[in-house]
Design a binder for these strands. Structure first.
Lengths: 203, 203
DNA sequence: GATAAAATAAACCAATTGGTTTATTTTGCC
DNA sequence: GGCAAAATAAACCAATTGGTTTATTTTATC
């Protein structure tokens, strides 16, 4: 089924995805037209259809791309550390710079996509869920690691805390985006850190 | 400028707003067409334009309506209590039932609107900010009340905790909507309560 | 029951939507 | 340099978009 793309074609395809990811992140799925995509990518409509069968297919690929960047950057931020406490600090630090160094213009693709997709684009919604699961799992594993290393309280409920972590961070990003100000997110992260210290012990 | 509407007209106008609020909340601003609005309201296009000059004007009124419901319900939930601790419990309890008894089909209008509006619909965005301010202020006042009553720790940072509260609750609502499950929100609220008890003292 | 307000029905608008096709050109690559 | 792959240009599609206008009918209210 899938043609074994030429390097050149692969490169064009990637360029389209990258530009489309920004557009969708800024304007949403319904708010982005082919005309917008043509202007942003600098590529013709025929070329777009040559690579993607529909707007939804392109949107899915664009979201996957954006989500992968996010996941990679989270991984990179924690990679230098083995100690769970350090890794958790690095994760919080990563989100401290989330608004000044956004993974993608338009803010958090998870936040943006989940809100529009879940009543309207089932294919997109399914992908967002997978990414949320990965984020949750990452935090969960981190807490469990800390418990295993003897640095976090053994009584900590890793599942619940991971859920709490993801929700609080996304909520903070939401406020930051709403007010176009990094302060609310900073405040939320600082407070989250206090909570986590209470639940996990000092880290 | 504004015609002194007949009661009948006012009633029709209100009906339009109520139905439009649901549609916009479900499908977003860009995702809702006049055809959708005509079908949902059962009213003709001429009638829509008779009452609202544009889709954006209608969307703003619809959001104001939805937001007012939310604010009213939050107020009602806390109204029976004078004790800040009780009021805070009532507020948390209100959000515990938020997904099973949504203020509006499609979920939280603040969450839904802020995400789409802030890069694209400045008028809507401005209104969401006002509502976020009110929610924040409500929690802030509540915490200050508790401090004044001597029930909450005097050391509590009401501003920061209010920001944290709003972010966490919105984040919990987001997860609940994403997973179409009330459990994540329950978990988040339970955890939030623990945090607050730590920061405010038992309430 | 008269009247003015409110709502309908429908024609109309230019522009845009997502999507297709085809012939032509440009291109990278062996 | 030749060839196939990739991209362009553009015509074309039916449908829909947000928005306007006008004549007609319904209706609430005095």
């Amino acid at each position: 089924m899938k043609a074994p793309l030429t390097p050149k074609a692969e490169q064009t395809r990637q360029r389209i995805i990258e530009q489309a990811a920004v557009l969708f992140n800024l304007k949403g799925f319904a708010g982005t037209s082919y005309q917008d995509l043509i202007e942003a990518t600098g590529v013709t409509k025929g070329c777009l259809y040559g690579h993607f069968a529909s707007k939804e297919e392109l949107a899915v690929e664009a979201f996957e791309y954006a989500a992968q960047i996010l996941i990679d950057k989270v991984g990179e931020a924690m990679a230098p550390y083995a100690h769970a406490g350090q890794r958790l600090r690095a994760l919080l630090q990563f989100y401290h710079t989330y608004l000044s160094k956004p993974v993608l213009a338009g803010g958090c693709p998870v936040l943006n996509t989940v809100v529009e997709a879940d009543d309207n684009q089932p294919a997109l919604h399914a992908r967002v869920i997978l990414v949320l699961n990965r984020l949750h799992k990452g935090v969960y594993k981190l807490i469990e690691l800390g418990k295993a290393q003897g640095h976090f309280k053994a009584s900590a409920n890793a599942q619940d805390l991971a859920t709490f972590f993801v929700a609080t961070v996304e909520g903070g990003i939401l406020l930051g985006k709403a007010y176009n100000d990094s302060k609310p997110l900073q405040t939320v992260l600082r407070q989250l850190e206090r909570c986590l210290q209470q639940e996990l012990g000092d880290f």
